[in-house]
Design a protein around this nucleic acid. Structure first.
Lengths: 185, 185
DNA sequence: CCAAAATATGGAGGTCATCTCCATTTGTCA
DNA sequence: TGACAAATGGAGATGACCTCCATATTTTGG
């Protein structure tokens, strides 16, 4: 399905992602004109747009492997721990991760806000991972089964969307605590 | 503190808010060019911008009284019900209200996303109302006191921010259910 | 190794929403 | 009523986003 990229195209693509990651870490990614970013990355605007039609698409590419890692972790947890504990561990990890990578929090927030996220691959994968964890735990009876996994997802969205609240970390932990306590039978 | 508005200015302001409310109800408010909106409302763009520097400012004006009503309701509930029940009732009302007025949900989501919300009067008031309810219930011992009221706020943000999820209502109810169950001692 | 075909490039310029500015109009007050 | 203050509105500046295409680079098949 995926046609092999020409050598120079691949090089440019990688350069763009590398520069984007750099800006994410510095926290400037979202404050920059997209055109200027192209110049920074050393490519023309046309090239940038061909590879990444929107800013969010680029953000997703940057975090693609990280999100994949999170999903993997979800699967591993689910395989090695009782379902409820796996869910708890995953949610706490998620907050840790968002805390360590503010860029991702902002990315997710944007993805959520623009609804482009509904189509984003990474977003889908994450949602699927959460759904799996929740339904597994519900099925073995350790958590209630009358609440949709989407509710957990929604709360996570809230955590991401509120990334700039002054007391973010404590509040995010609070949300997770409430969710887990609320889910317990 | 508030300087009295000239007669025509007041008239225009009211006309703009009225038209905005109309569009909110129709669901078109956010899909419209702000300039075109000015024409629709029968004022010049300059006038529109003088009264409402941003789209969000206008949205807030439209929902100002609604938010005020919600806050009043919070106070009344707090006065007439045990604290924990007041909190529960308020949160459920909140979802009902958001469900009935999608425009408000989207407004809140935007306010949250743009961080302009942190300064918005209505937003502040809502947060205060929630905080009051939570701390009251925590103080009388009916809910746990180790979780910040901000966590509840964050979850509400999530509900607002996710307003376009296909299964919104059920998931929103789920979030509230989990929060309330999680808060119980 | 060398065309010719396919693929990719980049940046000038088009498009469009946002917002400002100010000459003119409208309201207020003595 | 006259003069001063307040408000108006819409033309046009601004600036971000995105497209287009003449040129350049890579690949392919002979």
């Amino acid at each position: 399905m995926t046609k092999p990229l020409r050598a120079d195209a691949q090089r440019n693509r990688d350069a763009v992602i590398a520069k984007a990651r750099e800006l994410f870490d510095a926290g400037d990614f979202f404050d920059l004109r997209f055109d200027d970013f192209a110049r920074l990355a050393g490519v023309g605007t046309g090239t940038l747009y061909r590879h990444f039609p929107t800013r969010e698409a680029l953000a997703e590419a940057v975090y693609h492997e990280e999100v994949a890692a999170l999903c993997d972790r979800a699967h591993r947890l689910r395989a090695t721990l009782p379902a409820a504990e796996a869910l708890a561990a995953f949610l706490r990890d998620m907050v840790d991760y968002l805390d360590a990578h503010q860029g991702l929090a902002r990315t997710l927030a944007t993805l959520m806000a623009t609804r482009a996220g509904a189509l984003a691959e990474g977003s889908q994968a994450l949602e699927q991972a959460v759904t799996d964890l929740v339904t597994a735990a519900a099925k073995d009876g350790t958590i209630r089964d009358d609440v949709d996994a989407g509710a957990v997802m929604m709360a996570l969205h809230g955590i991401g969307a509120a990334h700039d609240r002054p007391n973010w970390r404590a509040e995010a932990d609070g949300v997770i605590t409430l969710l887990l306590a609320g889910l317990r039978r």
